[in-house]
Design a binder for these strands. Structure first.
Lengths: 249, 249
DNA sequence: CGGCCAGTTGACTCGCATCAATGTATGTGG
DNA sequence: CCACATACATTGATGCGAGTCAACTGGCCG
């Protein structure tokens, strides 16, 4: 499993870091830690005291409704910054657990504050990173609101594909997808039984192909049309009004 | 229709502003403008060059799928800061239009950058504000994923209620809801026909009561139970680790 | 008055949930 | 290496919640 370079690599996708900024980040970031499948990064109701960059491995965020049923609302892939969405809150409202073994780069909440105080450009990079995560969730909301089961699955597969590619451009149309059908069903608002049927249909139609914990996109354009998927909302660059301003400082 | 005080009032809900910060904001913010129902704040594919604080009036964000069907993904209520979600992007991916007449406080994207450069505390307030919007969308995603039609409507009504109260604590259980059933249906993933039936059922069960463009919550606890609604995720305060740090600076 | 739009109501249909049985790996201890 | 347990995926039968289509009502406005 490939290891990425912590928060500086992740933020580097939003703002070109100079030496000083890279130094600041590596100075604030803690040692990487290895975690096993099933390990929890944090629990519901805890104070958000650490955020984690995923060097490798997948995680997911869930909470439980009044009847104890699990509700998955987010998945984190290698390179993601887990925790910025909730870091300003008094307490976490999700539990985040590893779906696979992995390597994490922890960063204390107070160090995040140091970043904001010492470097406006990094503050902006953090905000951009958070905005991308938000856009992904908004996009999934739209997906679930207006697409049927087949389109939802198509859309989700493409979401993951482009998210993986954003951080690692060696990813091709054959990639790891360590989610059980149970997780897929919780994220897409359908039963795992129906996921199974829909996946079989997509495979039958030669749009994709499953190989154990991995998946292969066989016909990306047709999958994108089926899922009404627009990659611009995932890949779009920085606002030129901000980019110009940043370059001057 | 009540008028609020622009961005300083909105951000003041996240960080206690000192005189200097309030001055900075009022200096950067432009003159308020009046807009009519139907006016667009921006369109899909435009560069995000202005964000708007809603002094009064409601707006909604939509985009159109491949078949031209409208998809509503967000609604803005008085006091909301519209645009921070997309401001870091190269181009807007929604169109935002007024649902009612209203008053807006515009702020140029580059002035937002001035805020981040000149005041880390305000940068944090902006980020907190964005995080709240994100939490609302995440919460609605969970709502749509795992609740049936009745619970979705109950949840949404409470979402609006708590959002209005966050900004204006004079709001009671009778409040304005200038959304057509068409908008509700698009936000909740169901048809307006079914919205009509469900609303009638909720009224029949004495949980709420509709009066034209307004609505009255008759039984808040029961509505909250039905919609599995937890107000903490809307009202929760600032992370104490951040709050303590901010107080020291 | 007539046209228009939002909402309501009923009959019918269908996508997906539910329940239940079976298939297929993967792992574990004797 | 086999007997068994466990977890995940598949398949079929049946039922329900919500969509669809269409007719009708009532308010608003030129």
């Amino acid at each position: 499993m490939q290891h990425l370079g912590g928060i500086s690599q992740t933020l580097g996708h939003y703002v070109d870091l100079n030496q000083e900024e890279a130094d600041l980040l590596s100075q604030l970031e803690q040692q990487s830690i290895r975690v096993s499948k099933g390990a929890a990064l944090w629990h519901t109701d805890c104070i958000p005291e650490t955020i984690y960059t995923l060097g490798s491995g997948w995680a997911y965020a869930c909470h439980h409704d009044a009847n104890g049923r699990e509700r998955v609302l987010d998945v984190f892939v290698p390179g993601d910054l887990a925790g910025i969405r909730e870091v300003t809150y008094r307490s976490h409202h999700t539990t985040v657990s590893m779906l696979t073994d992995g390597v994490l780069y922890p960063l204390h909440t107070e160090r995040l504050l140091d970043i904001v105080y010492q470097s406006p450009r990094l503050a902006l990079a953090v905000h951009s990173c958070a905005a991308r995560q938000q856009a992904i969730i908004a996009e999934r909301l739209v997906n679930v609101l207006s697409n049927d089961a087949k389109a939802r699955v198509a859309h989700f597969v493409l979401e993951i594909y482009y998210r993986l590619r954003r951080v690692d451009d060696t990813i091709d149309e054959y990639f790891s997808l360590p989610l059980k059908q149970k997780h897929l069903s919780l994220m897409l608002g359908m039963t795992h039984v129906h996921i199974s049927r829909i996946m079989a249909e997509l495979e039958e139609a030669k749009l994709l192909c499953r190989h154990g914990k991995s998946i292969e996109i066989l016909n990306l354009p047709q999958l994108a049309e089926l899922g009404d998927f627009n990659p611009d909302r995932f890949t779009g660059g920085l606002n030129p009004l901000l980019a110009a301003h940043i370059a001057r400082n």
